[in-house]
Computed example of a mutant assay.
Amino acid sequence: MIDPGLIDMIMRLRGRGISDNAVLKAMELSPRKHFVGESLFEAAYDEQSLPTSCGQTVSPPLTIALMTQMLELTPEHKLLEIGCGSGYHTAILSKIVKRVYSVERYKQLIREAEARFKTLGITNHVIRHGDGRYGWGGQAPFDRIILTCALRAEPAMLIDQLAPNGKLVAVVDDQLTRYSKARKKVTVETLFPLQVPMIEAGKSKVL
């Protein structure tokens, strides 16, 4: 069944500079309304944050699309997501890469996300309960890493978990930033201002 709100969202994202067809297709195949409460269905595709459990939020579609596009994903990439949250971003990533590794600090969010994934038939993911600031050393290295929460400083420990030619995308000091690793050298690109809530002890913003 055609979802007019979803189609409008995809067209809006194209108009705002999202040109990666894989990202747009993944977002089309992952309707945002499946990741918010029924009372929020009417606002599901609006360009705004929406509340989810544990005092967290589902970020605006453009924020998610921009960060995903900056990863420059291909199907063979091994990807680590810091902050599964509602599972919305995880679902999008799962449509582009073979497997998504995700770290989430709230057990309730993990349970709710897994229930959504079961309903939607999403199986190419693994979620670990823990503090995402430390990454997932047992599964490193990763070709791509994305942080769904803002940081005040460079995530050195996570950069260390990048594979050669790997990329990490995060909001650092209110700037969308991409770290690219070539052998032992890391290149830093500050792309443009972007605000998402800051990660704090015991708290995190999740997409």
Score class of each variant (00 low, 15 high):
residue 173 D to A: 12
residue 87 G to T: 05
residue 54 C to T: 12
residue 201 A to H: 12
residue 202 G to H: 08
residue 22 A to Q: 15
residue 159 I to K: 05
residue 45 Y to E: 14
residue 109 L to C: 14
residue 173 D to H: 10
residue 24 L to Y: 12
residue 163 A to F: 03
residue 83 G to V: 00
residue 19 S to F: 10
residue 5 G to E: 11
residue 192 F to N: 03
residue 42 E to S: 15
residue 185 K to Y: 10
residue 207 L to D: 08
residue 132 G to I: 03
residue 35 F to V: 13
residue 136 W to T: 00
residue 7 I to H: 04
residue 181 K to P: 05
residue 60 P to N: 04
residue 72 E to F: 05
residue 27 M to E: 10
residue 207 L to F: 13
residue 177 T to P: 02
residue 29 L to T: 07
residue 95 K to S: 10
residue 24 L to G: 12
residue 35 F to E: 11
residue 3 D to Y: 14
residue 73 L to G: 10
residue 116 R to T: 10
residue 89 H to L: 08
residue 128 R to H: 14
residue 36 V to Q: 06
residue 32 R to I: 10
residue 155 P to F: 08
residue 57 T to I: 13
residue 163 A to V: 02
residue 110 I to T: 02
residue 178 R to G: 00
residue 25 K to N: 15
residue 93 L to S: 13
residue 78 K to P: 03
residue 44 A to W: 03
residue 143 D to W: 02
residue 23 V to C: 11
residue 132 G to W: 02
residue 91 A to K: 13
residue 135 G to C: 03
residue 3 D to A: 09
residue 175 Q to W: 04
residue 207 L to G: 14
residue 112 E to C: 01
residue 140 A to N: 07
residue 174 D to I: 00
residue 203 K to L: 05
residue 159 I to L: 12
residue 32 R to M: 10
residue 43 A to Y: 11
residue 79 L to W: 00
residue 171 V to T: 01
residue 22 A to L: 15
residue 127 I to D: 02
residue 35 F to R: 12
residue 62 L to Y: 15
residue 171 V to C: 03
residue 128 R to N: 03
residue 92 I to E: 01
residue 38 E to G: 09
residue 178 R to D: 01
residue 162 L to C: 07
residue 61 P to F: 05
residue 197 P to I: 07
residue 85 G to F: 09
residue 186 V to G: 01
residue 41 F to R: 15
residue 133 R to G: 00
residue 51 P to I: 07
residue 117 F to I: 00
residue 76 E to S: 13
residue 10 I to R: 04
residue 202 G to Q: 12
residue 37 G to H: 13
residue 156 A to M: 13
residue 100 V to Q: 02
residue 120 L to W: 07
residue 66 L to R: 15
residue 79 L to C: 02
residue 15 G to C: 00
residue 134 Y to S: 05
residue 183 R to T: 05
residue 118 K to R: 15
residue 115 A to Y: 14
residue 182 A to T: 13
residue 116 R to N: 12
residue 151 L to C: 02
residue 51 P to C: 08
residue 124 N to D: 09
residue 127 I to K: 04
residue 153 A to Y: 13
residue 42 E to I: 08
residue 171 V to W: 04
residue 132 G to N: 02
residue 86 S to I: 11
residue 112 E to T: 01
residue 110 I to W: 07
residue 32 R to H: 09
residue 34 H to K: 11
residue 195 Q to D: 06
residue 80 L to T: 05
residue 146 I to P: 07
residue 76 E to W: 06
residue 59 S to M: 09
residue 41 F to V: 15
residue 146 I to T: 02
residue 86 S to L: 12
residue 143 D to F: 01
residue 169 V to M: 00
residue 118 K to M: 11
residue 27 M to N: 05
residue 201 A to Y: 08
residue 205 K to R: 09
residue 60 P to V: 03
residue 179 Y to Q: 07
residue 40 L to I: 04
residue 41 F to I: 14
residue 207 L to Y: 13
